[in-house]
Design a protein around this nucleic acid. Structure first.
Lengths: 131, 131
DNA sequence: CCTTGACTTAGAGCGCACTCGAAGTCCTAC
DNA sequence: GTAGGACTTCGAGTGCGCTCTAAGTCAAGG
């Protein structure tokens, strides 16, 4: 208790990871995390817990739906023999991100084309510019 | 129906654009579109209407929120003098897409790193692999 | 004439991922 | 001892973007 502890409060983790305490409790509630409590019943996050939270936020940043993240960690909980399935899950999502990247790039191109039309030869609200 | 008509039914447009008829009615309801009716009260989409629907789907593919699409078309309806503002709106969203692209790429890198760990030196469910 | 089926409207419902509120507990500082 | 503030649980509420239902209209085919 006197020296640096290996655990962190919910406020610390929220701050460090960039999510709200509400969200951390939510993640725990839906089974993405198992966090210990201190004598007073408060959450104490280990560095491993924090690492997992960070990983979750990265998966979310990649638009992996909560349900699949739950699935992933359920597999983790079941032990090493689920590794091939975990790998498959990640690979599938990797492919989805890649295709999402492509469609975003194509949408970006559409918008850039539109922007070029506004910036370039554009005086009247002619035909295709209304759309 | 014998020759090519300049208008299309809701089912045709839905099919062509790849959205449901429900969604087309929804877009109209919230003011993204103004579609004419035939004698029987059915929607008749002109080619311009269809072009706008396609543009909307591209904006949606780029994650432009409905609210901002409404704003954009409200500006279009107000006439040519709103072009600078429309341009600004598109440019802002272009920047957002770009930053979204970057964060997606970074999330992809994280996942690829994880995949590499599963594929490579991985025998035990060691430390960081649980996260 | 009657059925079929695509269309119409207004409005309710859904899934997702949080986000917030209420009511209560517990440590800290004064 | 007591006020403050961060924490706890449970459950309800929010915002988005559809998605669906119900009840009715209409044109065409048998």
């Amino acid at each position: 208790m006197t020296t640096t502890e290996p655990t962190h409060t919910i406020a610390e983790v929220a701050e460090r990871v960039g999510v709200t305490a509400h969200t951390l409790r939510y993640y725990e509630r839906i089974g993405l995390l198992g966090v210990g409590r201190d004598a007073g019943g408060r959450r104490r996050y280990t560095d491993q817990d924090v690492a997992r939270v960070i990983f979750i936020t990265k998966l979310r940043a990649a638009d992996l739906p909560i349900g699949r993240i739950q699935h992933y960690f359920a597999l983790v909980a079941q032990g090493p023999h689920t590794e091939p399935e975990r790998l498959a899950l990640l690979e599938q999502h990797r492919d989805e991100i890649r295709s999402r990247l492509h469609s975003l790039e194509s949408a970006l191109a559409t918008i850039e084309f539109k922007i070029a039309r506004y910036g370039g030869t554009l005086g009247t609200d002619s035909s295709a510019c209304g759309s």
